[in-house]
Design a protein around this nucleic acid. Structure first.
Lengths: 194, 194
DNA sequence: GTCTATAACATGATAGAC
DNA sequence: GTCTATCATGTTATAGAC
């Protein structure tokens, strides 16, 4: 009675996790504005007031729900080629993109907070990618173009669902993109410098 | 008295144009959801009810406001190189993008109607670009990747305002992007086929 | 601790006075 | 023709019953 099995604040964490899960889905599908606390609560099978009780505000819920937005690239091999490094992340981008990432991406054009998240996340990706660009003083710009290229393809595929992209396998897309990314990374079109 | 100078239904068209102009700005800046009839009316200096009187609904206003969304590429020269063709449109994309286009782009991830507009517009761009890709059976896919590449760069520059891109001139961006687009267009990496 | 009821507010849209 | 006043709805957030 003083210390029951596991049903003290442990069950709370279970429902909290369920709410966060459904919120992530909803935010990913409809964006921040069109997602309602009511809908999230309904999907999670709880009362709307409970969601507020747990998270305080809709924005806080959003922030908590998209904190899957971390550590997508724990790469160690710094000697890898630039394009491979980029395309390694694209593979999982075209397949199962984390729902938290989807949620932030869908809201990034209309919600300033989401835009900020994406801006810093892409900034980090750009500096990481820039480290793999050979030399030159515009390595950051090259990296930024490579990252935004992948961003555009991901948006077209995942959010816009362009038929021309949906019909292609990730492998083919990667294969076609590799030379383009290499062209972005190579300052001089030397014939053989590998 | 029966036929005054020009102030019959001609002044109406003037205010209507002013409303459309302010609506376009507002939609471009905040997207469909966060744009209110009241704000548009306030910016145009008219009563909110008048906006409804003229356009019937918010969505109708949106549709009318973004009908600048036409004919961006009246190119005749079909013999032009693929990359040049693409980059010609990028020049004005990075500089002054039409506000109607901005409005649709900003809403495309959260508003299904806007997404539909963009999907068809990009589809048209893809088929147009595909006609300039040399041969191969995956020309449409290549064209789609080129178009989404430019889409990503445009989003990163114009909507997300990534520092790494804002600091670069359109000319440098174009120069760096050209080899990448060429790599997308060329099925075989032949040394000299021009 | 959980939920019912409701407050407080903003929105798109409508009806009717001027 | 133009605008004031209002409706109906949907939202986040709060207070209080169980």
């Amino acid at each position: 009675m003083t210390t029951p099995r596991q049903t003290r604040a442990d069950r709370r964490r279970a429902t909290e996790a369920r709410i966060l899960d459904k919120a992530r889905e909803e935010f990913a599908a409809k964006g921040f504005d069109r997602t309602t606390i009511r809908a999230v609560a309904g999907a999670a099978g709880v009362d709307p007031a409970l969601v507020m009780q747990y998270f305080g505000s809709k924005r806080e819920l959003f922030g908590r729900a998209v904190r899957t937005f971390t550590a997508p690239a724990p790469e160690e091999s710094g000697a890898e080629a630039f394009a491979d490094r980029m395309l390694a992340t694209l593979g999982l981008k075209l397949g199962g993109l984390p729902e938290g990432t989807l949620a932030v991406m869908r809201s990034m054009l209309t919600d300033p907070a989401a835009a900020g998240h994406v801006r810093t996340a892409l900034g980090r990706q750009i500096t990481d990618a820039g480290a793999a660009v050979p030399a030159s003083d515009d390595r950051e710009l090259r990296a930024a173009l490579a990252v935004t290229t992948l961003l555009g393809v991901t948006i077209g595929h995942q959010l816009l669902e362009l038929p021309a992209l949906r019909g292609a396998s990730p492998e083919r897309i990667s294969a076609l993109l590799r030379p383009a990314l290499n062209a972005l990374a190579e300052p001089a079109p030397g014939p053989e410098t590998a």
